[in-house]
Amino acid sequence: MQQFLNVTLGGLAQGAIYAAFALALVLIWRATRIINFAQGAMAMFTTYLALVLIESGQSYWTGFAVALAGGLVLGALVERVVMRPVEGGPELNAVIVTLGLFVALQALAAILFGATFQSFPAPFGLRGFTVGGTTIAFTPFSVFVIGSVVVVMLGLVALFRFTDLGLRMRASAFSQEVARLLGVRVGRMLTLGWAFAAVVGSLAGLLIAGGNLVHPAYMDAVIVYGFVAAVLGGLESPAGAVAGGLIIGLALSYVSGYLGSELVTLAALAILVAVLLVRPHGLFSRVAERRV
């Protein structure tokens, strides 16, 4: 029973991170029909920015804020400079460009920050809370992880639901042509979409790194889990991405806790294949029902 509790709590915290990462993928997919395979590398890069600042004596929070701001700038830059020339062309071109960017950023990080493992600090304790005399696998840092993901998600919901900017961004995502006829600067909305997505991705990068080791490829596994979570949620829906992230986090945690941690990647792949076979439009998609 105690192990079940531990595994569940650990899964929720991991799932929150996958949810954030999946959300970043979904934001870009919805607006541009591009899977941003460079999302993990971008997050890795901004996390290294935070690490450089923290090691130079700045506080964790300065590094945290700079990494998120760096994500905003990096996302906008990537869209404007790298993606804009291939937007509107064959989708495969854009996918190849994101893969190229992924490789380039990883190589650049290895040159700038070194290819070795470095430890990344956590702002809160990593020792589990004690409940009734036993220590559970839920730490103050886990609370911070879940809390910050929830805050970012509520922020995005508020942006998209209640602001004029959010309405313009959604209009651009759903119908570029109609949005342009209504005076919406669709290009600017795409840039902002990439920027916001990169902030959410950067948050996932920072949270994964907290209390762990980072190296230029440390986000690679998260890309896979985040992608599976996004597909699970149907790729279209931000709420689906969050639910998909939590499901993946829990599922992988149970596999790791009960079957063995070496099976985690395999389990993620199995889930992906199962979802694509049974519900290719995701667990929560209404489109699937309509298209039958």
């Binding site: 004029d164 309405l167 959604r170 759903f174 209504l182 005076g183």
Partner: peptide, 17 residues
């Protein structure tokens, strides 16, 4: 019509312009 948006959101886009 942007079918994914509500009636009012469609109209709001016109109003914003």
């Amino acid at each position: 019509v942007i079918t994914e948006l509500t009636v009012e959101e469609n109209l709001r886009l016109g109003e914003l312009l």
